[in-house]
């Protein structure tokens, strides 16, 4: 069992680092069963709470989990005036929908990762992650990124960080039909014009930002701001 867990940890770490890997990161039945047991006790009370509408979650996350992910992803890609961040782009909504659908096999990564994150924050700061000051949240995230945060087993701290980072980037930069990149917030941030069907020779030779056509998404277009 220990060997199998180690293999999954390594797999996940590499999966989160690689492009497109997260969708293929399979969880074996052993670890999933273990995660399930642990989740029953921590998740039951939260699941019983009514979910409010319009907060960009509800397909998978409970309210506490949603608050933590919203805060976490906003620290990874924080918003500022004129610079849309994760919250404004709806990254929480993207991850919530993905975990209820395409990434359903990663549900336990989030359940267990968030549970360990909460335990780490309560032990270290006697407070939940979402309620910590931004600078403290950054300290916690840095400890995850560097693999020094205590209390994580599977996923380990680094793997959990990598997974959330990858999904934050997807939520910012994937087409809005997947629930993030609201009003092309991510594409506006970096100056990506979306799925343009054609670039002209003049476009190709320009040394300026592309402004000839509106941003094109799968279902909508937006005026360049």
């Amino acid at each position: 069992m220990r060997k199998r867990r180690a293999s999954r940890r390594e797999f996940l770490a590499r999966a989160a680092a690689g492009a497109g890997a997260v969708a293929g990161a399979g969880l074996g039945s052993g670890a999933a069963a273990g995660a399930q047991e642990q989740h029953t006790s921590t998740g039951a009370s939260a699941a019983a709470q009514p979910r409010s509408e319009g907060q960009g979650h509800g397909a998978f996350f409970n309210q506490e989990e949603a608050a933590a992910i919203a805060a976490f992803t906003e620290r990874l890609m924080p918003g500022a005036p004129g610079k849309p961040g994760a919250r404004e782009a709806g990254v929480l909504n993207y991850i919530d929908l993905a975990l209820a659908g395409a990434y359903a096999d990663l549900q336990d990564v989030y359940r267990r990762g968030l549970s360990a994150l909460e335990a780490h924050c309560r032990k270290t700061y006697n407070e939940s992650f979402a309620r910590l000051a931004a600078a403290r949240q950054d300290d916690v995230i840095r400890a995850l990124d560097e693999g020094t945060a205590g209390g994580f087993t599977w996923p380990d701290a680094k793997a959990f960080f990598d997974t959330v980072r990858t999904h934050t980037m997807e939520g910012l930069f994937a087409d809005p039909i997947y629930g993030g990149n609201k009003d092309f917030a991510g594409w506006r941030l970096v100056g990506f014009p979306g799925a343009q069907p054609v670039f002209t020779p003049a476009d190709m030779q320009s040394r300026q930002a592309f402004t000839r056509a509106p941003i094109i998404g799968l279902q909508a277009q937006a005026k360049r701001s």
Partner: peptide, 16 residues
């Protein structure tokens, strides 16, 4: 760093 405000500004400036 690969996350946070400095990373956001890096990507915003240099993606294109």
């Amino acid at each position: 760093p690969r996350w946070g405000a400095a990373y956001r500004d890096f990507l915003a400036k240099y993606f294109a």
